[in-house]
Amino acid sequence: MDCADIALIVLAAGLGSRFGADKLSVPLDGLPVGLHIAHTSNSIDFGWRFAICSPASSLTPRYVEYGFTVIDNANPEAGQAHSLHLAIRAAEDTDAKALLVTLADMPFVTEGLLRKIAAFPTMAASYNGRNAMPPVLFPRTHWAGLLNMQGDAGGRSLLHAAQKVEASAAELRDIDVPDDLVRPADA
């Protein structure tokens, strides 16, 4: 699939309760955790870019600098599915053929991985053949199903038939607790 036909989505409205602070604003290698995916994807010509953020997010102006349309999620406690619903509603007003969903707390995703996932009709990352996980590409035909998801399940139930692209453990690391900032890449 051509990246110009894809809406890039960054889900960045999580509560971060296990971290104990705004984990997306914590510096990591000179950039806030939550902006790594925006920086990594900057050289890919996605047709649309949406960041779903909490209304008070300090990263909102920075996402705008990276060319994202920021959508406020005033109800982040409703879970990841609610953020995904907001993204889908915004993308429905575009000609996008697919959504490439990424998570702002996964700062180690590479441009190469994003490009591989964007190349197929339904694609998700995987490590050692484990379950499909973000980043994940959902074609427009899946959007109605995604709108039925609730809580933090996101689109997990729709991924059973997704093709998987192998990614390294380092690429798929997420930041949930402060120790994740210093955890070795192979952990």
Rank of each mutant, 00 (worst) to 15 (best):
P121I: 13
R62L: 14
R49M: 07
V70C: 15
V101L: 09
L158F: 04
K97M: 13
R140I: 12
R140F: 07
V165P: 03
V165A: 12
A81C: 08
L114W: 08
F120Y: 11
A124V: 00
E171S: 04
A169T: 07
R156H: 13
S54G: 13
L147K: 08
P107H: 02
A78R: 15
D152G: 01
L113C: 04
G79M: 10
P121S: 13
H142Q: 14
P121F: 09
S57N: 02
G151V: 00
V64Q: 13
L84T: 13
L172K: 00
F120G: 11
R173I: 00
A132M: 04
D95L: 09
L146T: 01
P139N: 11
A51L: 08
A104Y: 02
L137P: 05
D180C: 11
F50W: 07
S168I: 02
G129Y: 11
I175Q: 07
E111N: 14
A91G: 09
D152M: 01
W143R: 02
W143I: 01
G155N: 00
D152A: 03
N75V: 09
P135C: 06
Q150A: 07
S83I: 04
I175Y: 04
P61H: 11
R140E: 10
V64R: 14
N148M: 12
T94L: 05
A162K: 03
N75F: 14
G67P: 07
L159R: 06
S57H: 01
L147Q: 12
V165D: 03
S83N: 04
A167V: 02
H82P: 03
D152C: 01
G155K: 00
A104D: 05
R62Q: 15
A96P: 09
T102R: 01
L59G: 06
N73Y: 09
K164G: 02
G129W: 11
R183V: 03
A169E: 05
H160C: 07
K116L: 13
V182I: 11
T102D: 02
S168V: 05
D72H: 15
I71S: 10
L146S: 03
A98S: 12
D152Q: 02
S57K: 06
T110M: 04
N73I: 05
F108H: 14
L158C: 06
F120R: 12
D179F: 03
G145P: 03
D180N: 14
L137S: 10
I175F: 06
Y63Q: 03
C53S: 10
W143L: 02
L181G: 05
L159T: 08
P139H: 10
S58W: 01
L84V: 11
R173L: 06
L114N: 09
D179Q: 14
G79H: 11
M149Q: 10
L181C: 09
V136H: 00
A118F: 10
F138Q: 12
E65D: 15
S83D: 14
R156G: 12
H85R: 13
D93R: 14
S157Q: 15
V182D: 11
F50Y: 14
M133F: 08
A74R: 12
N148G: 04
G151P: 00
C53V: 10
G79K: 12
V70M: 07
P135W: 02
V182W: 08
A167F: 02
M123F: 07
A118E: 05
T94Q: 05
Y63L: 03
